[in-house]
Amino acid sequence: MKILVCIKQVPDMESKFKVNSENTWYDSGDLAWRMNEYDEYAVEQAVQLKEQQGDADLTVLCIGPDRVKETMKKALAMGCDRGAHLQDDESHKREPLEIASIIAEYARDKEFDVVFTGMQSQDRGSGQVGVLLGEILDMSCVTTVIEFGFEAGEIKVKRELEGGVKAKVKTTTPAVLTCQLGLNTPRYPTLPNIMKAKKKELLSSPAADLLKVDSRQNTQTMYFPEKKGVGLVLEGEIADLTDELIKILKEKTGVLA
């Protein structure tokens, strides 16, 4: 079995963001980078499937500048066999169709049986790449997967719907699955596995060679939303803060009455 997992490197969401000089994206300086949270579940599920199959081969793919290789090393340390880094300094500008098309061209002749992606990225949040990849390669795609099973060539999953309801669906390989938070418990790479990962194949090639579509949208401007919050912001010493808050709760709510 051949498995592909597609990951993205994103900034820590608690970062102090700045808009870049062109006003089209956030500035990439001074940010801490990590694996997109949804993709951690995708990597874990891919590794679990590989372990279940025994003789599977698992590739992790990431599009982006050289720094994304750090995040790919984590995926290798979690258990992926090889890394395909599609080098692209402009990846932040690419819309989901371009990203999906690059992945599709990479995957086209490689006969992957199962492809995992996160259901969305934490920064752009479009949630389209996995679905578009499925459409381009004519593979079935199930999104928002919260439970995954594979048996006798059949993929049985649960999709998460609103209000905690789940839909049980099945399909056959080849298929793309987009992974939702809570699908599994992503493992922490152990030190021996981090050391082993250093020796694994991690090849870089230009993403531009695989880009076969024109973009259909771009970012006109990026900006901070106007603060609508009329709320009070309290800062200072803990002891003062607790007193202030208690005073407010007494005045504004009935709960301490």
């Binding site: 900034p11 969401m13 963001f17 808009v19 089209t24 956030y26 934490q122 920064d123 752009r124 949040g125 949208q217 771009n218 970012t219 006109q220 401007t221 990026m222 900006y223 901070f224 939303p225």
Partner: peptide, 10 residues
């Protein structure tokens, strides 16, 4: 964008 910390016009 980024958990609603930013916005963009498309």
């Amino acid at each position: 964008v980024c958990n609603a910390k930013l916005r963009r016009n498309v």
